[in-house]
Amino acid sequence: MLLQQLADGVATGAIYGALALAIVLVYRASRTLNFAQGELALLGAYVSWQLVAWGVPIWAAVIVSMAALAVLSVAAEKVLVRPLVKRHQALPLIIVTLGLMIAINALIGWAWTYQTKEVPPLFGSGTIDLLGVAVSRQDVGIVLTVLAVAIGLGILFEYTPLGLRMRAAISNPESAELSGISTGRTMSIGWAIAGGVGALAGTLIAPELFLHPGMMAPVLIYAFAAATLGGLDSPPGALVGGIVVGVVENLAGTYLPHGSDFKQVVALVIIVGVLLLRPQGIFGRREVVRV
């Protein structure tokens, strides 16, 4: 029972981690919180659902959805975000991403109605025997998929020329430009990856939460908690944070009295606690003030 709870917690946590990763990638690229990240992921889930409804196999559907959301994120960044980033308008920027969140949500409701839809699990139903514990195939598949994405991105950032350019652009944008790196392009790539990873997260979690326009709002809160916990500028931190949040949420929901009511508060407690005790998160770097 406990082990099954842990497995569930790790699996949902991996999804929170994936969405937190999207938030972190955007934060690193544009120094802004993208409140629309959850709704972009939701849109990804709907695109996957629509393609499946048209007869496309779920695996192909999720890949197309990731590509579509990557393109859409780049467009949103170019049109709505970059002009404000250039003028250092932090507050308008937050309001723009909040507006985008509401707009995408309304658009989804209009296009697909508010009725709940069923997305097939990517990894089928049934369980796998893991060290004597029956763990659902979906849980195992989710964790392995998120892990593969994380490792792939880790290799991209740490060991490829493109990754080096992206890190340089984040470390010192002006010097990066002066070294011949188009920081506009590296920014776009950051948003594209975030959009794709978000679409994957949305499609992965949809079978469990059932697809409806309100699905991602709580997930976004958990993802923000995960990103805050791990450190807003740390991709590995986002994943670790996500898993911690997922496990704590699951255990709180099961073992605390009135747990299922209480577990919504978990995210809030984590966010406030981290901001008070260690604002840069577990893996984050303290903001350095440049002279």
Binding site: L164, R167, A168, N172, S175, L178, S179
Partner: peptide, 24 residues
């Protein structure tokens, strides 16, 4: 190539990575 005032090093990249960025 432009070496800005205050050097503009990439502080959190390694010394070798700094050079490789120069060769981007």
């Amino acid at each position: 190539a432009h070496v800005p005032q205050g050097r503009g090093t990439f502080g959190d990249l390694t010394v070798r990575e700094n050079l490789l960025v120069g060769g981007a």
